[in-house]
């Protein structure tokens, strides 16, 4: 009974907190909300009909977006594997693992858009900056997850291999990798889906891809053109999700 009462107090407090925060953010301001609805209707009307004359241009930009996502995810993945291994406590001593994890943690604190701004400064405008941004963001995310997967491998299997005198490279290749490959690849697909979405907005800061045109059309109020872009992105994301679902079903059985 005591535990139950404590639980309901916690839930109540959480709801109260939510209400307070929503109030501060303007959710209980009826005039703003009703004005918002009117704006939304106008905006939607302005988008119809979508301007399809920009399709060739937008197609090229979209292709660049996919290229950035592919290259960025792949590069990040290639870096995440060794970093994940180095961050695995079953293989390396704690101080070493901690250092690796702190580095990965620092990389993870920076969102992909901020990486894009940084790389635009470093390597200039264009898709190179966007690709590097996605690669770094991917490392921060995947390296941490992979280290956790690798650590989750049944310790008995690791012990048995250590028992025959296998070194760390062997352990990584013959025990850690085959035991966690499914989850590793599954997360890689997830990351690719995420990076497709993320790379669509990197162009906002000049880091290549379709985002550049989105921002241009937004600034010039060309909502009919913007509508075309949005529909293309929607189609792409949907296609990628379907593709990765299919790959998962076909090649990554959950056993």
């Amino acid at each position: 009974m005591k535990a139950l009462r404590r639980e309901s107090i916690v839930y109540g407090a959480l709801l109260l907190l939510l209400a307070l925060v929503l109030g501060q953010l303007g959710f209980f301001d009826p005039t703003r909300l009703s004005r918002g609805v009117v704006n939304l209707i106008t905006f939607s009307k302005d988008m119809i009909p979508p301007d399809v004359t920009i399709l060739p241009l937008a197609g090229r930009a979209l292709f660049e977006t996919v290229q950035m996502a592919f290259a960025g995810t792949f590069l990040g993945f290639l870096l995440s594997l060794p970093l994940g291994i180095l961050g695995t406590r079953t293989l390396f001593p704690p101080p070493f693992v901690l250092t690796v994890r702190v580095i990965v943690g620092v990389i993870r604190t920076i969102p992909s858009l901020l990486w894009a701004v940084l790389f635009v400064i470093v390597v200039g405008l264009g898709p190179l900056a966007g690709t590097l941004a996605l690669a770094f963001y991917t490392v921060g995310y995947l390296a941490k997850l992979y280290a956790e997967f690798f650590e989750g491998v049944d310790p008995e299997i690791v012990e048995a291999a250590k028992g025959v005198g296998a070194n760390r490279l062997h352990l990584a290749r013959f025990v850690i990798w085959p035991e966690s490959a499914n989850s590793v690849l599954s997360q890689l697909l997830f990351m690719f889906e995420y990076n497709i979405r993320a790379s669509a907005i990197l162009g906002f800061v000049g880091a290549g891809g379709i985002g550049f045109y989105m921002q241009a059309y937004l600034n010039t109020l060309s909502y009919q053109r913007l509508a075309t872009l949005l529909m293309m992105i929607f189609a792409l994301v949907l296609a990628m999700d379907l593709l990765s679902t299919w790959i998962r079903k076909r090649y990554l059985p959950t056993t």
Binding site: D154, E156, I157, A161, G163, G165, V175, P178, A181
Partner: peptide, 17 residues
């Protein structure tokens, strides 16, 4: 190390190999 063999309870085989 090489002269000592060890077979754990759950065998410690790598399932994916």
């Amino acid at each position: 190390r090489q002269k000592i063999g060890y077979i754990p309870q759950q065998l410690g085989l790598v399932r994916g190999l």
